[in-house]
Design a protein around this nucleic acid. Sequence first.
RNA 1: GCCCAGUUAGCUCAGUGGUUAGAGUGCUUGCUUGACAUGCAAGAGGUCGCUGGUUCAAGUCCAGCACUGGGCACCA
Length: 903
Amino acid sequence: MGRGHRAIFRMKKRYQPQDIEKKWTDWWEKRGYFSPQPSRRKATFSIVMPPPNITGSLHMGHAFDLTLQDILTRFKRMQGYETLWLPGTDHAGIATQNVVEKGLAKEGLSRQKLGREKFLERVWQWKEKYGERIFSQLRGLGASCSWKDKSFTMDKEHSAAVRKVFVQLYKEGYIYRGDYIINWCPRCETALSDIEVEYEEIKGKLYFIRYSFKEKKKEGKDYLVVATTRPETMLGDTAVAVNPGDERFKKLGKKYLILPLVGRELPLILDEYVDPEFGTGALKVTPAHDPNDFLMGKKHNLTFINVLNKDGTINEKGGIYQGLDRYECRRKLLADLKQQGYLEKVEDYTYRIGSCYRCQTPVEPYLSRQWFVRMKDLAREAIRLVKEKQVEFVPPHWKKNYLGWLENIHDWCISRQIWWGHQLPVWYCEDCGEPTVAEETPGSCSACGKIELKQDKDVLDTWFSSSLWPFTTLGWPKGGEKLEKFYPTSVLCTAWEILFFWVARMIMMGFKCTGKVPFYKVYIHPLIGDEKRQKMSKSKGNVIDPLKIMEDYGTDALRFSLVSPQSDSPYLPFSKDRVRGYRNFANKIWNASRFVLMNLEDFRPREKLEDLKSVRLSDKWILSRYSSLVKEVTSHLEHFKFSEAAHSLYQFIWGEFCDWYIELVKPRLSGKEGPSSRCTAQWILYYILKGTLKLLHPFMPFITEEIYQRLPEAGESIMLSAWPEKIGTGYFFPLPTGERKGVRGKAEEEMNLLIKLIQEVRTVRSEMMIPPSKKIDLWLRTSNEKNLDILKENKPEITNLVKAKKLAIDKDITKPALSTSSLVEDVEIFISLKGLIDLDKEKKRLRANLEKLDKDLSTSKKKLSNANFFKRAPSKIVEKEKEKKKTLIQTSERLKKRLEELK
RNA sequence: GCCCAGUUAGCUCAGUGGUUAGAGUGCUUGCUUGACAUGCAAGAGGUCGCUGGUUCAAGUCCAGCACUGGGCACCA
């Protein structure tokens, strides 16, 4: 890789990220920098990447999550840790199966037509194609993962580990099979766990239906009214329940009712569960299609009638409704009820409906035989580990959320009736039907010894394998150097969205399987929303593609804009404006570097400053500010304060290094102050630039490497260079011991006076409308000896930055005629106006400006008062116009005031 | 219903009990100043959600309330 400062001649005026990003990605990877390097510190730092699904393309969420991890990894690597960031992908059972099925549908095929084996071949083809695509996109993002260690949740080793854990948990009684009400997605045709169901409030109806008594009553009504939101489930009713304490029903005694349209006899049962206040106080009981009814069914020994097929249509138990879709059935059934006089009334009712988190189809509570993980004991340990701070949450408030979920946890349904995933390591005996659970295909039934066995067709919940991810990726259960060195991992970095899905389960399974926590810290970050903090989604059409942003503004700008806002709200706003701002920042860095390099042609880097006499106040100041920067960035990164670290860097680079130091140093670089002063300036510029690039590297890896490689004596890659240490005063200024103390504070205090003074003069210039091209005569007067010395010492700097042709500094100056005066601390400032402004000309100019403003103002007013404008223009534009109007009024008033003063 | 977070400039957000509450962006004015017009300089813009309390001192700590966002649990 060509390097050296001669490269400056090829530096364009504008930073063009597209030219260089790929070059560095390839180079870093070719040189093997991303894989663990033997470390001088011997301490290790490891992160396992939350594996992206193989279904998709890189989205903003990945970009954010991975940028944060990359920053941590690069930071720790530069600090000298032996660093491993482990990448991988997730097979994402249902999600991937759905995507592949959609593809098949376009070909007129279906998974059923293909058959399981052929279908799985197709999914593997998909994986080969798209699994790599996401990796290449991650590379483009600059992710410094150890690519050679990448893995996939359905790798051979990983699958073996999954089976091992399953068998172990089964043998220890944590995994069991049972008939329970689970959430069933009729579209995916599989069971879902509780957290795979998303609830949404909908405005629906509550239907009141008459159930007649079996025996006709002599007096009063001969029916009970029950209320339901899902009338079609009545086909599976096997009882009606009332609260035993409910006076209204006390006289009834033991009774039977007749299920309308079906004619089944339903016992009237008493159960405390029924809320007398709700509906009519009478509850239809459908034990096979409602979790609470299920419990009641168990308790009262009711019959369980499942009326639904797997695809959500009514089965043979539904009589004349057989074959209808559940909602179609609802309509028909309601019509029939109404016609036959069973429908008492219909009320509007708002309730929550659960949908499949993968396909948004409303789920049905469904009685079926599934496999579960008993969670209570596992959760207890996971609670303890966090309470004992063996695992810490950042920010800490997530801890409560985590604990709250674990304390009320239900058993985890882990079997899925899909094809893509880890098939259950369970075989059923064709003879006795007993399950045999084993890591490898068993030879015979463990119960009766017969050899005719068939493997369970179900696969495991995707999150089962994900929960093992931190240790299986490192070589568990075989063990080895990687596992020993890097497990437990240092940090887990992910969004709050998958705290329960993934983080909590990793802690439970990690501890269960390895006896250790899977990670010491969990950094939970927000999700990336759009400008209005709305979740990005295809249906809303507000998705911003990070790849497009990278192309338009550069990857460094994207990374910086993702990391830069900090908020505890669940969604961070993302806007192109912000990225554009950081693209400009990258350009600023580029040009500042270009400037430094242009002035470093004859410079040879040396260990220390040689000529201390030519060190000026501005030098001490910038070194002091830089020293603070090192401290801040380091500390912020240690505490996951990414945005604060980014902010410190932005502020220092733009607001201090560029705006002040570079400007202050220009005359010295031109040689006006002598060769020695120039040399010192070069040394400081080089030193600060090099250090700042390093501090910035984790955030903006590409531009920093590009510039770093152009520095004289750059060394190897910036990503392997040592993280800057905070500098001591003695290191730079080997002054006599007595003078070292407080040198930084003093330099900053003195420099602040100069800055304030220069700003004040500029303000006056601007207010007096003195053209920037005109040089001024300036008098500074103070009786404060200390300040007088500072001013005198820094006369060249002041002269240059306020554009003065004459600068007089003394404690005894008479105020010049026709001048303005102002005050900074105890320094009086006089600027001669003589010859600077032609009074008549100035008045003319003010009047002209006022006229223009008036014109703009009336246009603006007209616009705003125009009803059409309000109607047609987006509110954003109206707001902007209002603001413009406000500013116009203010400016015009200021000008009027100036005009008055000139008279 | 329970839990969490938030409420600060037009917008998006920082702010660690202590001078005059900051940044980016937007807006206004001026400027081809020698690295950068993706720039420079200057300016305008604030009831720190409301009400109390603690304190010499509160945007910051405490309590209550209001509103916004999110999560969890639910009665058919």
